[in-house]
Each structure stands twice: as structure tokens, then as C-alpha cells.
Amino acid sequence: MSHDKIRFYEIKDLMQNVKRPRRIDIVLNRKRYNKDFHGSMEQKISLKTSPSNPSLQTDQKVHMNLEKLLKDKKYLVAFRTFLQSEYSEENIDFWLACEDFRSTTVPADLRRKAEAIYQEFIQPTACREINVDHHIREKIKKSLEKPSRSCFDEAQKHVYLLMESDSCPRFLHSDAFLSLKNKSRSLWYI
């Protein structure tokens, strides 16, 4: 055995001596950082904007979130493309399929669409399986006997929260979002 390689147990011994921050320290530091960051950003924004240009002022204050993103078609398309690049577009496709399902009024269509959504996204062998727990899967499977418009609500909420906490923040910091945002902002001045 070579001396150049570090053995696992040596790393383990070294890691025991590393001081790790406690959860409460992380949370408190994050709150402090957010407070300082947002306070300084508000100050910078108020210096850059002027009462003579109200459209710039409201544009600076608008904060994009997942709800707004899903309502705007150009941002929705960009978000879906971003999710494709991360191999997780099944989340947005499932969410959109649930929205379409919820607007269904014909009972025969309800059953057909429910089966299609289950087979594509929910069942354990689904080609585009979403990340929901076993209990939610079982509830949906049972509800397929007599599907209602709310049978996917719990899974849809779970996927929404997953996108809101994970994918959406990464998208909002991506080059794709920033260039789209700058492009739409420049169109107001043309």
C-alpha cells in the first residue's frame, strides 16, 4: 500500500477534530446576512430610482417567485428549459398536468386523464416518476377507482414546494433567467 493515499480511517479521525457549526448558528447567521443584504440593496435601489421614472421603480421592487413565474408564459418556458437542463422537467410537467386535470369537467375525461397522469408520473415504474412518498402514491392509487379533481392535490403541493425551495432559486440566479429579465426590461424602453 502506498503512503501517498490517505486512508479512510485517517480522514475520519481528522474530521472529528473539525468544529462544525450548530444548526442554530447557521440559521442566526443567515438571518443576519439576509437583513444586512436586503437593507443595503434597498438603499442602493432607492438611490438608483427616481420619482420621475415610476416604471423603473416598480420593476426594481418586483421580486420574482415561483407563483409569478408559473403565471408568465415566457418565464414558464424558460423555467421548463432550465429544468430540462437539470433533468428534472417532470416536476413542472406534472404540475401543469395537474392544473389541466383540475380544470376538467367531463367525468369520462377525468378518469382518462387521472390514469394517464398516474402512469406517467406516479406509479413506481413510471418513465417520468416524480419524487413523492409511498403514502401519497397509495392514496392516489386508491382514488383512481373514482377520481375527483382533487386526487392529485397533495402530490402537486409536494412537487410545488420542492420546486419552490430547490429548482426555482437556482433558476432565478441562472444566466437564462437573468438574460430573459434584462431582455424584457429593455423592451419597455424601446
Rank of each mutant, 00 (worst) to 15 (best):
S2I: 10
D4W: 02
R7G: 09
Q16N: 12
K19S: 07
P21L: 08
R23G: 02
R23N: 01
I24N: 07
L28P: 00
R30G: 00
Y33M: 06
K35W: 02
D36Y: 04
H38D: 10
M41N: 06
K44Y: 00
K44I: 05
S46F: 02
T49P: 07
S50T: 15
P51K: 03
Q57S: 12
T58I: 14
D59N: 06
Q60C: 07
V62R: 01
N65V: 01
L69Y: 02
L70M: 13
K71P: 04
Y75R: 13
Y75S: 02
R80P: 00
T81P: 00
T81G: 06
L83N: 12
E86T: 08
Y87A: 09
S88G: 13
E89D: 14
E89Q: 13
E90M: 15
N91S: 12
N91F: 09
W95E: 01
A97W: 04
C98P: 01
C98N: 01
E99H: 04
E99V: 04
E99T: 05
R102G: 00
S103K: 15
V106K: 07
V106E: 12
V106D: 10
D109S: 10
L110M: 13
R111F: 12
K113D: 08
I117G: 07
Q119K: 14
Q119C: 13
E120G: 03
Q123W: 00
T125L: 05
T125V: 10
I130E: 02
I130Y: 04
I130C: 06
V132C: 12
R137V: 03
E138F: 12
S143A: 15
L144N: 05
E145W: 03
D153T: 09
E154K: 07
A155K: 03
K157A: 04
H158E: 07
Y160N: 03
L161G: 01
S165A: 11
S165M: 10
S165L: 12
C168G: 01
P169N: 10
R170F: 00
F171M: 03
F171I: 05
H173Q: 13
S179V: 07
K183P: 08
S184M: 14
S186D: 11
S186Q: 15
L187C: 09
Y189S: 14
Y189I: 05
I190V: 07
